[in-house]
Design a protein around this nucleic acid. Sequence first.
DNA 1: AATGAATGAGCGTTCATTCAT
DNA 2: AATGAATGAACGCTCATTCAT
Lengths: 197, 197, 197, 197
Amino acid sequence: MNINDRFCGDKRLRIIEAAIAVFSRKGFHGAKVEEIAEVAEVGKGTVYEYFKSKKDLFLEMVLYIHKKYEDIAAREFLGVITFRQRLQEFFRVTLEFLHQHKEMALILLADHPPVDGDVNRLILLKKQQQVSKVSKMVEHAIEQGEIRPVNPKAVAQLILGSLAMVGSQVVLGEEEKEPGDGKLEQDVIDIIMRGLK
Amino acid sequence: MNINDRFCGDKRLRIIEAAIAVFSRKGFHGAKVEEIAEVAEVGKGTVYEYFKSKKDLFLEMVLYIHKKYEDIAAREFLGVITFRQRLQEFFRVTLEFLHQHKEMALILLADHPPVDGDVNRLILLKKQQQVSKVSKMVEHAIEQGEIRPVNPKAVAQLILGSLAMVGSQVVLGEEEKEPGDGKLEQDVIDIIMRGLK
Amino acid sequence: MNINDRFCGDKRLRIIEAAIAVFSRKGFHGAKVEEIAEVAEVGKGTVYEYFKSKKDLFLEMVLYIHKKYEDIAAREFLGVITFRQRLQEFFRVTLEFLHQHKEMALILLADHPPVDGDVNRLILLKKQQQVSKVSKMVEHAIEQGEIRPVNPKAVAQLILGSLAMVGSQVVLGEEEKEPGDGKLEQDVIDIIMRGLK
Amino acid sequence: MNINDRFCGDKRLRIIEAAIAVFSRKGFHGAKVEEIAEVAEVGKGTVYEYFKSKKDLFLEMVLYIHKKYEDIAAREFLGVITFRQRLQEFFRVTLEFLHQHKEMALILLADHPPVDGDVNRLILLKKQQQVSKVSKMVEHAIEQGEIRPVNPKAVAQLILGSLAMVGSQVVLGEEEKEPGDGKLEQDVIDIIMRGLK
DNA sequence: AATGAATGAGCGTTCATTCAT
DNA sequence: AATGAATGAACGCTCATTCAT
């Protein structure tokens, strides 16, 4: 173990971070393993020491991104009680994550085109998990009487759909320096809350 | 000249329809020109008689899909007057289009990953056109006093975002045979309309 | 037979003339049959009515060029008696032909790279015919006592070699408007004649 | 590292040697990269590790051939003083080079047909360099009073032209085993020298 | 473990040739 | 006879993957 190891961190992680940068810019088929290796500052062969194929690296990268997002979300949600607050937090945390990790965001948001059965299954699964998480949040709010009784799935679509739209503005729009300062986000939340009262 | 010519139409169209099928299943980089030719039942070289490159074929296909969708939408919108009706129609027409043309839908919906400057520009342009079309519909409704004064862009995000979410369910969910029978769509519209009253 | 036939001449000839233009600019492999057809203002399929393949067209074109050159040379040589005059005429006629038919010239001069066994054989044959023609001219001059007894083949190499060099200057050099006005040609002939006296 | 590495040298050289063999037999357009790779006993992709395109390989090969010829010529010319000796050496060295490297010779001699602007420029440049080298040799001989005052360019054409003719006999004529034993070469030199006295 | 030179399957594209009209 | 739309074999080049070091 030399001094470099401390600096460079675990190679596996370096490769995943590089994969995020390259896959998000070029898409799955457009990205070259060699470029990922260069960005990660490792040899091309080294990528294959940690991941058995390009596809495997892509799948592991998707898992890593979702995990990172969920960790942040979980941390921020502690102590939040009312539905409106939760919704606010959900938008805020998500948009901030997107803003800070634009590259990852492109992968989270993008309906990446069919790459392969395995990839599609994983991405679909992750989407469904999110829908069901939001649905549960809504169901809980209904039980608490915070909002009127509505189809929780419909609300989940509404919330996730508009969040994705606003989010893609944040990611693609380079003119906006600060993500939260835009009233757009608040306006969207307002309309949703009014519709649910 | 045999009976087939009448059915199949000219080769150019056959190739575009084949491109929709293949690009939507495999994405731009994953699709092979040879497979498109096979699906279109033409020789590989024939593709290049009508399109100067794979990229050109992709662009022309995107234009074709959007045109087809807009033609249908324009026809259905004739005589629709109130905002609620327009919104209803917008959801209905879009979801029906998605259901009937699932393959095209995957291309309309998918945030195709960066393929190339030209492709990106075209896709971004088409998205912005849709946002501004919906925004105008909202502005008009505000002027008519049908809905309260809100940020039209926020509403556009809400509408297009949730429509995309519901739409992706329609496209990906194979369990649902009938698209319109689900109350999901109605529930989403209801919440939006309530939020705008 | 319509008026066009008189103007356009025989299609076969039009195609050969087009072949000269295109093959000389692009070489055998670089030339496209379609381009030759366009230049000849006939359909692509028509080329195959007159020539059974691209290679066949090339061979026929080479024969045509040599025949044309030989016809001109034969005509000009009538009545020329002394060796010096013959040499002068040979240079003059050849350089004038090259100047007037630069495109053909490129094919006559160029050691076209190996295209195919048949093509090579034909071109080699034509070269040998030229060497033997010049050799005979030299032998005759020796018999007449016009020049000292030398190896006729050596003289032929000298004459044809330097003629090819001067000729390539004529063809490639665009600065020279008039081919014959250059003293270069005279200087070369002078040195050769002195060497043979 | 096995014994072969020492013999075969680095792969780059193996590929250039293979390129000489294949390009000289088939010409630029007729040669296939795959065949060059096979002859070099490397994978097809390996060619592209060392040369960025087929055209690049061709250009590098031309440079390599000229360099090799010039190296040999420079070495042999040391100590040669009189013009006649120089001319003798020039013929001898060139014909020997052609005989020993028939494949390279075909490329040195052949007026390769237009391949591409870059290729043409390089080949034309190399030809002009040769003409000017011979011209200088002649000028020097005139200054020394070894030969009578003549147009140096005319002499250069004469020398290079007849050398090319004799050379092409050497390369194409398979019947002659020994190049130098033919009196042809001596006869040509004799005539030239007599013409210059 | 780490590397990158080497590989060859695979793809986009071209173009000589055919054939229905 | 004349055509040009259609074809598919063939080629230049790329890049995921392997393997000797």
